[in-house]
């Protein structure tokens, strides 16, 4: 697929004396992880399609400090936060959208106490608002009638009580939405949170992502929909561990919408 995406930076907007409608916070996964980069690009295609004037920080973006904070390294987190807040406030950012629930949570809930006050949205909520405003239209396309289960990211669902936006988007795709036994408030973690992504798990019987994948397999989905780059990786690995690559594909909700539209 020929890529033709427009990704303006804040520096460019600034140089032109303009302000974007929203800042897209890409995050470390979205910037560097090969799988997550596809989600990043899918989301940008949707933003382009809906004519959203957005910008990214590009090389001025840095880790929000989430893994540091959850690991207990408050000092490193606050150093990262201070640097990011300085950049964001310097550009007078008002509204931020991000494809990562961890970036979303930390900027929405924990940056305000350090002087960073922004309206922060998760990309599923943002896409939902674009649909509601009629700026983006979604049709079932290739996902119509497909059996899909949504894996709630902890930091979006339980952590911030957002359960319906991603599901509403999936319903627009006219999929057959099936819920795992543990879903929404009771959803089981993929195993990546709390900086687990960056360390070996403690000894145990099983890896968390495999256990969660087994729960997903119980409802026999063709796709597992994710809303978090970490969950995406963990569930993809889980599907591989269970030798289910032929039957189950893990995709971000934004990717599904973009793919359905063949963007």
């Amino acid at each position: 697929m020929a890529e033709n995406i427009q990704v303006p930076t804040m520096a460019q907007f600034m140089a032109e004396g303009k302000a974007p409608e929203v800042l897209f916070w890409v995050g470390c996964m979205g910037s560097f992880d090969d799988r997550a980069k596809k989600v990043t690009k899918a989301f940008v295609r949707l933003l382009n399609r809906a004519n959203v004037e957005f910008a990214v920080l590009g090389t001025e973006e840095s880790c929000t400090g989430d893994p540091a904070k959850r690991a207990g390294n408050e000092f490193l987190y606050q150093m990262q936060a201070a640097g990011n807040i300085e950049v964001l406030n310097g550009y007078e950012i008002k509204k931020i959208v991000t494809t990562c629930p961890h970036c979303f949570n930390i900027m929405k809930n924990e940056y305000p106490g350090l002087g960073g006050n922004y309206e922060v949205m998760h990309h599923t909520t943002f896409l939902k608002s674009l649909l509601d405003e009629g700026r983006l239209t979604v049709e079932g396309g290739k996902f119509r009638g497909k059996r899909i289960t949504f894996h709630d990211p902890c930091y979006l669902g339980r952590g911030n009580d957002i359960y319906e936006a991603p599901r509403d988007l999936l319903r627009k795709l006219e999929v057959e939405l099936v819920e795992m036994k543990r879903c929404k408030k009771d959803a089981m973690c993929c195993g990546a949170g709390g900086a687990q992504m960056f360390k070996e798990p403690e000894p145990g019987k099983e890896d968390v992502n495999v256990a969660r994948t087994e729960q997903a397999m119980e409802v026999k989905p063709q796709f597992i929909a994710a809303g978090c780059p970490f969950c995406n990786t963990m569930m993809t690995d889980g599907v591989k561990a269970k030798n289910q690559e032929q039957n189950i594909e893990v995709m971000d909700v934004a990717e599904m919408i973009a793919n359905a539209e063949d963007l």
Binding site: R182, D186, M188, C189, G191, P201, E202, P203, G204, K205, E206, D207, V208, A211, R212
Partner: peptide, 10 residues
């Protein structure tokens, strides 16, 4: 319902 406990961690 702890994912760590459910998977046999301490």
């Amino acid at each position: 319902q702890c994912p760590a406990n459910n998977t046999g961690k301490l």
